[in-house]
């Protein structure tokens, strides 16, 4: 059937071009527990969205679903024009390496690899490792002097910057942050957020950041509040 006879579908196609993420009745159950109640959410391309809520409010679940780490129990989920429900596990992995960069609260760096090698690991899964490019990425996040250090020899802020370098190395369209500043002091937090803002200006990726810190949420364009898996409030910054 051609799209001319199906105006609804056509409209959705048009909307998709501007929205990088589109969910429709997105639900995630863990057994009997409903972590995310049916959620309709649109995130336009280039937006910085902060997701706030208490622990267990479903914000991490939302982030995992959007990043292709987890599968929804019901509803539809389109990211960058891809229907994530149609992808199998390896397909999701391929989607993640090309489309998504993730910054973790606990950094999750490989302990036996140096900073540069940790960045190269992401390159390896994406395509081929390229040391010069990885070094350049670390220089961009201000770690040009700590290239050959293992994660154990780096401070929390430095580790988080390695994590950022790793997240942006494959030029993702979507950057996910799971409480990226949760373990950092105020000074490091500001530094990391400044860095993210700078990088976003250059690379023009979309940011979805989960946090419970009001100040951190304030760096974004829009903040949504989740409570018990339900979107309770939405706030536009500017």
């Amino acid at each position: 059937m051609s799209s001319a006879f199906c105006p609804v579908k056509r409209e959705r196609l048009l909307r998709m071009a501007e929205n990088i993420i589109e969910t429709n009745g997105l639900t995630r159950n863990y057994g009997d527990i409903c972590a995310l109640k049916p959620l309709d959410l649109q995130i336009p391309e280039g937006e910085w969205l902060s997701v706030m809520g208490h622990s267990g409010s479903g914000k991490s679940t939302l982030m995992n679903l959007v990043g292709g780490l987890d599968r929804p129990s019901a509803g539809s989920l389109q990211v960058g024009g891809k229907d994530l429900l149609a992808l199998n596990e390896d397909g999701l992995a391929r989607f993640r390496r090309e489309f998504v960069g993730i910054i973790f609260q606990q950094h999750h760096l490989v302990p036996y690899l140096t900073a540069v090698e940790n960045v190269m690991m992401a390159q390896y899964f994406h395509s081929v490792p390229d040391e010069a490019e990885a070094r350049h990425a670390l220089e961009r996040v201000g770690l040009g002097h700590r290239l050959k250090n293992r994660p154990g020899e780096l401070s929390g802020g430095e580790q988080q910057r390695v994590c950022i370098a790793r997240a942006i190395i494959n030029s993702p369209k979507l950057l996910l942050g799971d409480e990226p500043t949760g373990n950092l002091d105020h000074k490091s937090t500001v530094m990391v957020m400044e860095l993210l803002k700078e990088l976003r200006a250059e690379e023009r990726f979309t940011v979805v950041m989960v946090t419970h810190n009001q100040e951190v949420a304030g760096w974004g364009d829009r903040t949504i509040y989740l409570d018990d898996g339900v979107l309770v409030r939405e706030e536009r910054m500017r």
Binding site: Q123, H126, S127, V128, D130, E133, H136, I169, S171
Partner: peptide, 9 residues
Amino acid sequence: GAQRRKLIF
């Protein structure tokens, strides 16, 4: 860079 590596790969 990512595009470059992709082509090589």
